[in-house]
Nucleic acid binder design. Structure first.
Length: 321
DNA sequence: ATGGTTTTTACTGCGTC
DNA sequence: GACGCGGTAAAAACCAT
């Protein structure tokens, strides 16, 4: 703080610290000149004129504009250890109402200690949440980029996680699990869904646990996640298979028809999307094999076959109406 | 826990290049 | 003969009850 205020307002404590050199007066106003060894300057106390500079500056070579930044840039301080959850930086207050010699405290002191304990605990849990959050956000970031999800999905996932944390949904659940569920939910909300399998692929958590946690989080947070729309998978599959715009649109149309006829209820959206993409590739004469589609969609060929028959039937039925 | 539905696995036969 | 495709039966996974 004080080291960054400007020369003029440098306070009297600086004057007290720097004992030497009040011999020469300030050339400007004749006032006293105090040496500021930290900045290698000699400054007039009255008018703030820098009388001498470029002496040895013992201050840090960086500047910081608030205390947080200062903490970050500073390279000094107590050694930290990674073995403790908080790197050993938090405070502990003994629960006993005794002083260092084992004598009990008077009631006034006891009350004071109670208060201190309470607040210490509050701060500590607060930053335990911070740490939790930090780790989770790291995970979210890692998974999102592994899944090729855009920035805004990461944002959403982070927000979801924060809410889960605020509402105390974490106890009993792993950070990993909840962050994965957040990513999954965020991707779906943003209309760029990834299948549970895909998400599970980049997570350290079992698929079943992700699903469980996901349901839990969605329920507790009252998140509104519409059932995944098959169409939202289409662009990704199409591009991974190198299909044309035309095929992509064709696939959408097929899905649209299917939707109107209600063919798709209960079927997995991914399978439907995969089938539509495959069917569209046939209709537009772009060669793709069922195997390739099943590969990118993570769906068995059998399912693709079944679905795409249904799609074509729906298409025909529609033509009659 | 159970039963019904959907998906997957594994296998087979057919046609084409 | 390898490949793509279609079909089938049984197993597994999933979901609602």
């Amino acid at each position: 703080m004080s080291e960054h205020t400007n020369t003029r307002t440098r306070s009297t404590e600086t004057e007290a610290e720097n004992e030497r050199d009040e011999t020469t007066g300030c050339p400007e106003c004749g006032g006293k000149v105090a040496a500021d060894s930290e900045h290698g300057e000699a400054v007039c106390i009255d008018c703030g004129l820098v009388v001498e500079e470029d002496a040895i500056d013992r201050g840090p070579e960086w500047r910081a504009f608030d205390s947080a930044e200062k903490d970050q840039k500073s390279r000094v301080g107590a050694p930290t250890t990674n073995m403790m959850h908080d790197k050993g930086l938090s405070t502990n207050i003994d629960w006993r109402d005794q002083d260092a010699y084992g004598n009990s405290l008077d009631s006034r002191q006891r009350q004071k200690m109670q208060r201190l304990r309470k607040w210490n605990e509050r701060f500590r849990t607060r930053d335990s949440k911070e740490r939790n959050l930090k780790q989770a956000l790291g995970e979210i970031d890692r998974m999102s980029s592994a899944l090729g999800l855009p920035e805004n999905v990461r944002e959403t996932a982070s927000v979801i996680y924060r809410r889960a944390l605020d509402e105390n949904l974490l106890p009993g659940r792993s950070i990993e699990g909840v962050s994965t569920a957040s990513v999954y939910a965020a991707a779906r909300q943003a209309g760029v869904p990834r299948s549970l399998d895909e998400v599970a692929g980049v997570s350290r958590v079992e698929k079943s646990e992700i699903a469980r946690t996901y349901r839990y989080v969605v329920r507790e947070l009252g998140l509104e996640v519409a059932p995944a729309d098959p169409e939202s998978y289409v662009p990704r599959f199409a591009s991974e298979l190198g299909l044309s715009e035309e095929a992509e649109n064709r696939a959408r149309k097929l899905l649209g028809n299917a939707k109107e006829q209600g063919v798709h209820s209960g079927k997995s959206p991914v399978g439907l999307a995969a089938a539509a993409v495959y069917a569209a590739s046939l209709l537009t004469n772009e060669k793709t094999t069922q195997a390739a589609v099943s590969e990118v969609a993570d769906i068995s060929e059998v399912t693709i076959r079944n679905r795409y028959h249904e799609l074509l039937e729906a298409e025909q039925d529609l033509a009659f109406v």
